[in-house]
Simulated scan of single mutants.
Amino acid sequence: MDGLGLRTRIDDIGNMYGRYANADNEGAAPVVIGSHLDTVVPGGRYDGILGVVLALETIALLQERDVHGSRPVELVNFTGEEGARFAPAMLGSGVATGLYDVDYAVARTDAEGAVLGEELERIGYAGDRHNRLGEFSVSLEAHIEQDTNLDDNHLSVGIVDGIRPVTWSTITLTGPGGHAGGRAQVDRQDPLVAAARMAASVDEDVRAMDGAKATIGQMNLHPGSANVIPSRVTFNLDLRASQESSLRDLLNDTSEKFAVIAEEFGVTYSIDTYWRMPEAVFDEDIRTVIARSAETLGIQTMTLTGDIGHDSLHLSQVGRSAMLFVRTSGGISHAEDEHVPWPALLDAARLYANTVVELIK
Rank of each mutant, 00 (worst) to 15 (best):
G3K: 15
L4M: 12
R9Y: 11
I10L: 07
D11T: 06
D12F: 09
M16K: 14
Y17P: 06
N22L: 02
A23C: 05
D24Y: 01
P30E: 00
V31G: 05
V31I: 12
I33G: 09
V41A: 15
P42F: 14
G43T: 04
G44C: 00
R45M: 12
D47L: 01
I49T: 05
L50D: 03
V53Q: 05
L54Q: 07
L54F: 04
A55Q: 07
A60I: 02
L61T: 15
E64W: 01
F86C: 04
F86P: 04
P88C: 11
A89H: 14
A89K: 12
M90Y: 08
V95L: 09
G98Q: 02
D101S: 13
A111N: 11
V115Q: 10
V115L: 12
A126H: 10
A126R: 13
G127R: 05
D128K: 10
N131C: 02
E135K: 06
V138D: 08
E141S: 07
H143W: 01
E145N: 06
E145V: 04
D147R: 15
D152V: 12
D152K: 13
S156P: 01
I163W: 06
I163V: 14
V166C: 10
W168A: 04
I171F: 11
I171G: 04
T172V: 12
T174V: 10
G177K: 03
G181W: 02
V186A: 14
V193Q: 12
R197P: 08
R207M: 04
R207F: 08
A208V: 09
M209Y: 13
A212E: 08
M219S: 07
M219R: 08
N220E: 13
H222N: 03
P223N: 04
P223H: 08
S225Y: 09
N227I: 06
F235A: 07
D238W: 01
S245E: 10
L247A: 00
R248Q: 14
D249K: 15
N252D: 15
V260A: 13
V260L: 13
V260K: 11
S270F: 06
S270M: 05
E279P: 02
V281G: 05
R287S: 14
R292K: 14
R292E: 15
T296H: 12
L297R: 07
T301W: 03
L304C: 05
D307R: 13
H310T: 00
H314K: 15
H314W: 12
V318H: 00
A322W: 05
S329L: 15
S329F: 11
G330P: 01
H334Q: 09
D337E: 09
D337V: 06
W342I: 14
L345Q: 03
D347I: 00
A348K: 05
A349D: 08
T355R: 06
E358V: 02
E358C: 01
